[in-house]
Design a protein around this nucleic acid. Structure first.
Lengths: 197, 197
DNA sequence: GTCTATATTTGGATAGAC
DNA sequence: GTCTATCCAAATATAGAC
């Protein structure tokens, strides 16, 4: 089993360059907007010519796809790194803050991950699977607090993404909707409690 | 005062053509996405050549701006046409349905009116004023039901737009989040009631 | 793998004749 | 007001040399 243990330096180099391209792409979309990404700019940013990118990605959409995948992976890791308080209220507050913080710290990323604004772009099944995994994780946390109804999970995602959307659209950089997080949690938990009766 | 009472046929014609352009633009963005609008396609659609559009609009962004204005005007009219039930719960249900229906019947329009996805586009002050007017109308309705706290209005807009966003992004054409409208209203009103104690 | 060169398409916008 | 002609720039993508 030699082939599986020896390092493939060529592959490593390839992957490293791919990562470098994606990193540069994130910087550009933060600067010029998600739809404003151009392959020329992207190549220039890392000292390449545009056609060279095609050694790493089959198309521009493939680059968006890799970003989509990486973005959801980043959220998964962030969520898993965040502690999960025992107390219900604190657990939901932490989860909401993690999500909203993650979204607001990079609105262009949030746009790619959670909205459908790029004409013709759809994530590949492999990348979409990561997004699904993130949702499953949320479901798991709900279940650990005794909430199994899928409609309640949907209600929760609507509320948290609603905060993010309004914050980005109507008070970018501010905190007008961000500070409503605790209210949303209280409201939601009261609703769950009432439902149980 | 002759000049003010005589019809200006040239102006009427001009306004009619502007309206025709905007109508065609709405059709195109519904078909190809908001960002997929091109002036060539737009002109072709109404039997013009692209440069002729510049007799009616100064730039592509000006066209988006007119659409933004018209979109919010349409929402204002829709809201005003919708009856306002006396009972609180029914009033909020009606308001929520009106908003969500309006958004879901044309996601591209919702994207233009409520999200910031076109790089470089910002509505003109005059157009933005119409959007503000729509918000003021909502505030007025809240006030008539004894809700004055601006934070509660923000909470409301976050929840309703959250429903829309999730519905469009994760179940386009479906009703998975749409059917949560009544839950959202109940949850919100219970929250308001609790707050009053 | 990277480049140059180029194909091809498309975009928004302007000049100037009619 | 509308057109033709054109500009200019930008876009994605491909071919083929090195």
């Amino acid at each position: 089993m030699l082939g599986t243990s020896i390092r493939d330096r060529r592959l490593e180099r390839h992957e490293a360059t791919r990562a470098e391209i994606i990193d540069a792409a994130w910087e550009l979309v933060r600067e010029h907007g998600l739809a404003g990404l151009s392959l020329r700019d992207l190549a220039r940013k890392i000292g390449m010519q545009a056609p060279s990118l095609y050694s790493y990605f089959g198309s521009k959409h493939d680059i968006y796809d890799a970003m989509f995948c990486e973005g959801w992976q980043a959220y998964l890791e962030r969520s898993q790194a965040t502690g999960e308080p025992r107390a219900v209220r604190e657990a939901f507050r932490a989860a909401a803050r993690t999500f909203v913080d993650f979204a607001l710290e990079d609105p262009a990323r949030y746009q790619l991950l959670s909205q459908r604004t790029i004409p013709g772009f759809e994530p590949s099944p492999e990348s979409y699977a990561v997004a699904v995994e993130a949702l499953e994780m949320a479901r798991g946390r709900f279940a650990r607090h005794g909430i199994a109804d899928p409609a309640l999970v949907d209600l929760w995602t609507a509320m948290t993404s609603g905060l993010v959307d309004q914050q980005i659209a109507n008070d970018p950089g501010g905190r007008r909707w961000y500070r409503l997080i605790d209210d949303v949690v209280d409201m939601f938990l009261a609703h769950v409690k009432r439902r149980r009766r």
